[in-house]
């Protein structure tokens, strides 16, 4: 090849330095034209993104990294692409639109180089180089976008779970978690984590898990309930389970799950009464254990 990569890089760097305004304008225009954004990212914001990415490209090209490694190996450039993609993900753009937007920069760059040279071979070499350089950016953008969305989904489902499993303070040093609906492993895990944290925060001595609103319990869930009770005990508090429906009591018996070591009560009110008794339990003087 008569046009060396070094020459192409130099050419591109010059275009980026001298025609940065022009490239940014064109890139922003192309993105607006694509009209794929479907978001409320303003033209000013697009322009800002474009400026920071173009600024980062120049030092990126100075590195020795091969074309397809430039974007991933230069921290500033990597950051610019990641930042842009995350912003799109948060504002609700589609992943396709996001990576297309990044890829549109190719056209803007090539146009700028075209203004410098008409030599077909040179242009071809430049086009190939730009492709190698920015295809990676498109892929990185897509990947980042997907990760960003997942992060959002994860946070939302976490919030939803926390909303559906509130820990309430019923009495001085008595907490309760009323569980409603279907219990699965993920939810019982959250219940356990929230409950233990609340016990520590409130210095609670008794935790009541009320399952009046729970329709079914399987072995896995029963096991998790047992684990929760054990974890509460390890922390130094007591646990009462209330509101076991007759059908669930039967299931538990049929599954052969041993809940005999767990304090259970028919209703939340009974459980609260039991809890208060537990707190006042040690009796006047509170010095049980002296007789050991």
């Amino acid at each position: 090849m008569s046009t060396s990569e070094a020459a192409v890089r130099e050419q591109l760097t010059r275009a980026l330095q001298e025609r940065d305004e022009e490239i940014a304008d064109r890139w922003v225009a192309l993105q607006l034209e694509q009209a794929l954004l479907g978001t409320d990212i303003s033209e000013a914001e697009l322009r800002e993104e474009a400026d920071s990415l173009i600024d980062a490209l120049v030092p990126g090209l100075e590195s020795d990294a091969p074309a397809e490694r430039v974007v991933t190996s230069h921290p500033g450039l990597h950051q610019a692409v990641v930042g842009l993609s995350l912003r799109r993900a948060r504002s609700g753009a589609t992943p396709t639109a996001t990576s297309l937007a990044v890829l549109a920069l190719k056209e803007a760059l090539l146009k700028a180089v075209q203004r410098e040279t008409r030599d077909a071979e040179e242009l071809f070499a430049t086009a190939v180089f730009i492709n190698r350089l920015l295809d990676v950016a498109g892929a990185l953008s897509f990947e980042t976008y997907v990760e960003g969305r997942e992060e959002i989904i994860r946070r939302q489902s976490q919030q939803l779970m926390e909303l559906s499993t509130p820990v309430v303070r019923l009495w001085k040093q008595v907490l309760a978690v009323p569980l409603i609906g279907t219990l699965d492993t993920a939810r019982t895990q959250i219940v356990m984590e929230n409950l233990l944290q609340a016990i520590q925060d409130h210095e609670a001595l008794v935790a009541i898990i009320d399952i009046t609103g729970v329709s079914t319990v399987d072995t896995a869930v029963a096991q998790h309930l047992m684990q929760t009770v054990n974890a509460v005990r390890l922390m130094g508090a007591d646990c009462v389970i209330s509101g076991i429906q007759p059908s669930i009591a039967q299931t538990i018996a049929q599954l052969g799950i041993d809940l005999s070591t767990i304090l259970t009560r028919a209703t939340l009110a009974d459980a609260l009464a039991a809890a208060i008794k537990l707190i006042d339990g040690p009796g006047p003087g509170g010095d049980e254990g002296e007789s050991r």
Binding site: A231, L234, G236, A237
Partner: peptide, 25 residues
């Protein structure tokens, strides 16, 4: 004073510290 994450992990490990009395703080 066992921390909550420690209590959860212990229970999952299958260790219930049988016979050990615990207190919140």
């Amino acid at each position: 004073g066992m921390r909550p994450p420690v209590a959860i992990t212990l229970v999952e490990l299958g260790i219930e510290l049988v016979g050990v009395e615990t207190a919140l703080n």
